[in-house]
């Protein structure tokens, strides 16, 4: 048993790599040889994980993936526990439909981070996705429970159809965020162009954000500014075309 399982990419990926087998809880029970033998698809061709990654460590619920993973899709899919750290950029569908544990991306993520499969009624049902960069498109679509934090920018489909949970975006969010939001919170530090089906409620200091931001600082080491921790937020309720129990919280200053 090791403290960490470290997967290091052997060579730059020339084609999309479907790597949904990489999830901390699944690797926790496996030895090095079993991990190397996990099925993986590269450019639609079947292969095994060991063809693309060197594997160091075994039987640990803490996994570090190293390398240029921009074309590696689906890492952390369905993860139910453990800690998965991705050193660098990652492809689409990271943390897809996960239900527990933490996925920590030290870089940018592709579309549909912390998201749902096409046509699925719900996506993430628990756990935390931390992206220390931007998301090239949507994040947290149809999330049922859990948390997605993006320290950079996010696309307009972020939080689309969210049922509950929390999304925090430090940077800018493209127009249309929160469409079809039922419950849940979308928090932004910059101006947010909301759908017309959101209605202004008040400007206040949400106490749960202070708990959340201190947690992000202490547990994940995220640089949340004091002004954002103690500041006031505009609260917009919506999506009123849906259940209307959700909220967009936009930072309004100190």
């Amino acid at each position: 048993m090791s403290d960490w399982v470290v997967l290091t990419l052997r060579a730059a990926l020339e084609h999309p790599l479907e790597a949904s087998c990489i999830a901390a809880d699944r690797l926790a029970a496996l030895g090095e040889r079993e991990i190397s033998a996990l099925p993986i698809r590269h450019d639609r061709q079947a292969g095994v994980l060991g063809d693309f990654f060197t594997v160091r460590g075994e039987r640990a619920a803490r996994v570090r993936v190293v390398g240029g993973l921009d074309a590696a899709d689906g890492i952390g899919t369905g993860m139910a526990g453990g800690e998965l750290v991705i050193e660098g950029n990652v492809g689409r569908d990271v943390g897809l439909e996960m239900s527990g544990g933490t996925v920590d991306v030290n870089g940018n993520a592709g579309v549909n981070a912390g998201g749902a499969r096409p046509g699925a009624t719900r996506g993430v049902t628990g756990g935390e996705v931390i992206i220390r960069g931007s998301v090239a498109g949507d994040a947290a679509a149809r999330m049922r429970r859990g948390m997605v934090v993006v320290t950079g920018d996010a696309g307009g489909g972020t939080g689309q159809g969210m049922i509950a949970g929390t999304v925090v975006v430090f940077g800018s969010i493209a127009a249309g965020v929160g469409r079809f939001l039922k419950r849940g919170s979308i928090v932004g530090f910059r101006d947010i162009e909301r759908p017309a089906t959101f209605r202004y409620a008040c400007t206040y200091q949400p106490p749960h954000l202070q708990v959340l931001f201190h947690y992000l600082r202490r547990h994940h080491g995220l640089p949340v500014a004091d002004a954002h921790v103690t500041g006031r937020y505009h609260r917009y309720s919506g999506d009123l075309a849906e259940l209307g129990r959700g909220e967009i919280l936009q930072w309004a200053g100190e």
Partner: peptide
């Protein structure tokens, strides 16, 4: 809201929450 595995309740009151 669930933060770090703990569930908190947000109760709306006249002051805020």
């Amino acid at each position: 809201k669930v933060v770090g595995g703990r569930r908190y309740w947000r109760v709306p009151v006249m002051e805020g929450e």
